[in-house]
Nucleic acid binder design. Sequence first.
DNA 1: TACTCGAATGAGAATCATTAGCAAAAGGAG
DNA 2: CTCCTTTTGCTAATGATTCTCATTCGAGTA
Lengths: 120, 120
Amino acid sequence: MVIGALAEADGPRSAAELSRAIGESVPLSSLYRSLAVLEEVGVLAPHYSSPGLTRYELAEWLSGHHHHLVCIGCGRVQDLEADDAIERRLQEIVADVARAASFAELNHALEIEGHCARCA
Amino acid sequence: MVIGALAEADGPRSAAELSRAIGESVPLSSLYRSLAVLEEVGVLAPHYSSPGLTRYELAEWLSGHHHHLVCIGCGRVQDLEADDAIERRLQEIVADVARAASFAELNHALEIEGHCARCA
DNA sequence: TACTCGAATGAGAATCATTAGCAAAAGGAG
DNA sequence: CTCCTTTTGCTAATGATTCTCATTCGAGTA
């Protein structure tokens, strides 16, 4: 149910939001347990963008590589896929920059802050 | 004292870390109050990268624009400035991508995950 | 110098998301 | 059907952060 709910979502979701999405029938302790397991096995990826709460999304091998638009107005995080040409240019930049800091890059994401269409 | 400690740091710091840095003399309630005020007036910027805790850094108008290297091993976040040429290319990409999503960009940061030199 | 009153402080209680503990319920092999 | 292991759901515990409130400070005033 968690995976289904996240597959329908357009961005990361918190435990509370997921609980609502799947109908409150699952006790929170079970939900948190499932989230922990799914994260551990690499199906979910945590995302932190608001104080004191963790949102989850499908790992990129399931959802595809993407970036995040974080709305300062409503706090929502929206996924965004860039087209290949842009992604290629970005990957170059990331590689350059990580190499310069002798940092072993495993993944990257562009976090863009601003106002979403609704909050503009 | 908070600003001084953050000016010396090479990345965002949590309330607990700051408390240690300034010698535990300031009560936590005061420290949190100061952090809230400094954030509100735009001197500090919060950063979220670990579950359940907020780290602060100097706002970009004080520290300069930069990106983040997030170490999966130790959880540390390190600041990283890119040189102008790279930054220019990156800014183009961000503008493209935000426009495509009709999102009003105010700021962006590249979050690079991987292993830092120590945790490699 | 003493007085007044609003703002700042500190200690501790309260809150919220999350985690841990544990007894009861399920599942599965024999 | 029985025994044993795993999973569940409820509740209490935890940890970071925020709130409350009585106290202290300080600037301005007589």
